[in-house]
């Protein structure tokens, strides 16, 4: 199991109602359903991924998370998950605030664009970095937003969003210090008063 999935599954309480925005092939939702008896649903934009997610027995609806949340009533979900999808949306601020409206808690997983190898590539090669976690060329990438763990903390502070838990990951290891330099992924548990 991927470490980020493991950390998310352990953070979610049993029997919760969970919405995964950009749920892909439904792997994480299937884990939450099996291991935490959660009531799960997802939104996904890729048709092929939906077939795979439905094969895992989860409810998925076809749509764009940039425009997909106004259908849901407030605080309808215990958790809304945005794992690895936030950097691909057009209106991240709107999506996070909407996620905090429909969910009591929001779990966000972001790729850290200021991870050390990226910094070194920029510094030494003078080119936009391509790493294992971010393997795309600038002209052919699903990523629209480039942010670091620090940037995300700043965003939450500015918008009065409380980070109740933060974890940083490098591959299959958790990073306890110098997260913004050493980790390639940040995971946050958010709440808003």
């Amino acid at each position: 199991m991927r470490l980020d999935h493991k950390l998310i599954v352990s953070a979610v309480e049993e029997g919760s109602k969970v919405l995964d925005l950009g749920c892909g092939d439904g792997t994480l939702l299937a884990l939450l359903k099996e291991q935490k008896q959660c009531h799960v649903s997802g939104i996904e934009i890729n048709e092929q991924a939906i077939y795979e997610a439905m094969a895992k027995g989860v409810s998925v609806s076809h749509g764009d998370i940039d425009s997909g949340l106004e259908d849901y009533s407030s605080k309808r979900f215990d958790y809304v998950i945005l794992n690895g999808s936030l950097q691909e949306v057009l209106h991240p601020k709107k999506v996070i605030l909407e996620a905090l409206r429909v969910g009591k808690k929001v779990i966000v997983g972001i790729p850290n664009f200021c991870h050390l190898p990226s910094r070194l590539q920029i510094f030494f090669t003078g080119r936009v970095p391509r790493t294992k976690g971010l393997p795309y060329d600038w002209y052919d990438t699903p990523n629209l937003r480039f942010l670091s763990i620090k940037d995300f903390r700043d965003f939450c502070h500015k918008h009065n969003i409380r980070i109740t838990k933060e974890t940083a990951v490098l591959g299959n290891r958790r990073m306890a210090f110098m997260r913004n330099v050493l980790a390639n992924q940040g995971l946050f548990l958010l709440e808003k008063e």
Binding site: S41, E47, I50, Y51, M54, S59, V60, S61, H62, G63, E70, D71, Y72, S73, R76
Partner: peptide, 20 residues
């Protein structure tokens, strides 16, 4: 899609796919 929106607004269990 309008149908799906209305079903979701009723907190129903909805799956939806647009097949190419």
């Amino acid at each position: 899609q309008q149908m799906v929106k209305a079903l979701k607004a009723n907190d129903l269990d909805v799956s939806a796919i647009l097949i190419e």
